[in-house]
């Protein structure tokens, strides 16, 4: 029983026929070819598959594709480009927050929602916002630094 769904992916409207047991993660990677979204566990525990649905970070490995009908999905590819990277992408590069980069897309998306809602987060708020994104390389220090830097650049006031 396939069904056609219509949703917005990175600002563009898109129609797609999906099976009801297909996971959003696989549809994004395979059908849409957006491989910035990663598989790290498939059980909701690492955050590598994080995408934004209606601007909120969720896990695409535990989301049925069929349920995003009429919703707005944003992946890492949708928030910045080579010419015009998102301030978070810029800050991650500058502070050394990208080591292997496998956790980076999910991490940046979690941070984006944080800064969109709370332009001037405290260090604790930053840590809590990314608690669902595991990183084995960095020890999180430079990631937190990067989010702070982006917050300043995006106009959040910081003492």
């Amino acid at each position: 029983m396939k069904k056609e769904i219509e949703f917005t992916i990175n600002g563009k409207s898109r129609k797609l026929t999906v099976k009801p047991n297909e996971l959003l993660l696989n549809v994004i990677r395979e059908d849409l070819g957006l491989t910035g979204t990663k598989y790290g566990c498939g059980t909701g525990e690492c955050g590598a598959c994080t995408v934004l649905i209606d601007e909120e970070p969720v896990l695409s490995c535990l989301t049925l594709a069929i349920t995003v009908d009429k919703k707005k999905v944003t992946t890492i590819e949708g928030i910045g480009t080579d010419e015009n990277p998102h301030p978070l992408q810029q800050a991650f590069v500058e502070t050394g927050a990208v080591q292997c980069g496998f956790c980076t897309p999910g991490m940046i998306l979690s941070a984006k929602t944080l800064l969109d809602k709370n332009p001037n987060p405290t260090e604790d708020e930053i840590k809590r916002a990314i608690e669902g994104n595991l990183c084995r390389c960095t020890g999180y220090i430079k990631i937190i630094e990067a989010i702070k830097l982006a917050s300043v650049r995006m106009g959040g006031r910081r003492k």
Binding site: P57, V58, L59, E131, G132
Partner: peptide, 9 residues
């Protein structure tokens, strides 16, 4: 409970 993503879902 859980993480931000889990609490969103």
């Amino acid at each position: 409970m859980g993480t931000v993503q889990i609490r969103n879902m």
